[in-house]
Design a protein around this nucleic acid. Structure first.
Lengths: 163, 163
DNA sequence: CTAATAACCTACTAATTCAGTCGGGTAAAT
DNA sequence: ATTTACCCGACTGAATTAGTAGGTTATTAG
């Protein structure tokens, strides 16, 4: 099982997408600003998300990404799977050849755990996350912050142009 | 959440200990032979397991390691915790400062997942594992194999001494 | 007593992965 | 035409993993 910043970033970014999906495609630089994830890194992650048809891209000005289907039909497990290679807890990827061709002592334990984690994350859709109160609260703060910093940087630009 | 070969090795080794606990202390080289884990690596892992008082050591010839307490009172979660730093799925270790001092969008999701995994692994004792049929089967095969290879290497030694 | 055993300890290493950067593309809208 | 923003590949520092190497200390069997 592998669950690092990579998978967390992917889920966070997808959730950001789900939250701002009403006003057309969402650009990666918007997500980068709101979520504090580097733009280039997001590009790498979204390349994988696109390959797994979790998102569709719109090129050109005003473009960005959109969810490929309804929020209720995209699950956290799918997102993590898309960017990591697997959510498997066994070392042998279920092949049971963990100990030189044979099954290792704890093989079945890790299989059970993998199932457990997968089941848990498979039940959580973006829709479900969007409706959570803790998510809404954080999202509201982020929207406010990004507007502030947007106007702040606008002021900086103006100041630079004037000064 | 970090669950790699490290944690798997530790659990496997502890289970081996639990299975062979009747005939006195178990040496790391025995575990190394049976489980196919490098001796030096086992030493590193057991240093941590000892610090967490999961095992006690007996030095000198005939020495080795023993479980510090009953098999039913040692749980997989404790073992994984002892060798990895944590089984936490959040990046901020529960401090909620994932996004530059603030809570990130998906913080609570990872908290939930951490709890889920921890609960699952906290319920599984070594006792429980020892009684599982799949574990017994693998253990039987390993005991046979190690005896064969032990007598084989004994023969090699004899052959070397004679030849 | 001494030789063997096995825990204990420190330091080093190759390989991998993560998280991120950089530079240059290409497609589409204004 | 220019800007926007996706697209793509190569590269990088830092961290971690899994393991090596080489020694020291405690204990016991002979």
């Amino acid at each position: 099982m592998r669950l690092t910043t990579k998978g967390r970033y992917a889920v966070t970014a997808m959730l950001d997408l789900a939250l701002h999906t009403d006003s057309g495609p969402v650009s990666l630089s918007d997500i980068s600003n709101r979520q504090g994830i580097s733009l280039s890194y997001l590009e790498q992650l979204f390349a994988k998300l696109r390959k797994q048809s979790l998102v569709v891209s719109v090129r050109g000005p005003g473009g960005g990404y959109r969810l490929s289907r309804d929020r209720s039909d995209i699950f956290v497990a799918q997102i993590v799977d898309a960017v990591n290679e697997s959510v498997d807890a066994t070392g042998c990827k279920g092949r049971s050849d963990c100990q030189g061709g044979n099954t290792c002592l704890t093989h079945h334990l890790w299989c059970d755990l993998s199932d457990q984690i997968h089941d848990f994350l498979s039940e959580i859709s973006l829709e479900k996350l969007v409706k959570r109160q803790d998510v809404r609260q954080v999202a509201d703060r982020q929207d406010k912050d990004s507007k502030v910093s947007a106007s702040a940087s606008q002021e900086k630009i103006s100041a630079a142009l004037i000064g």
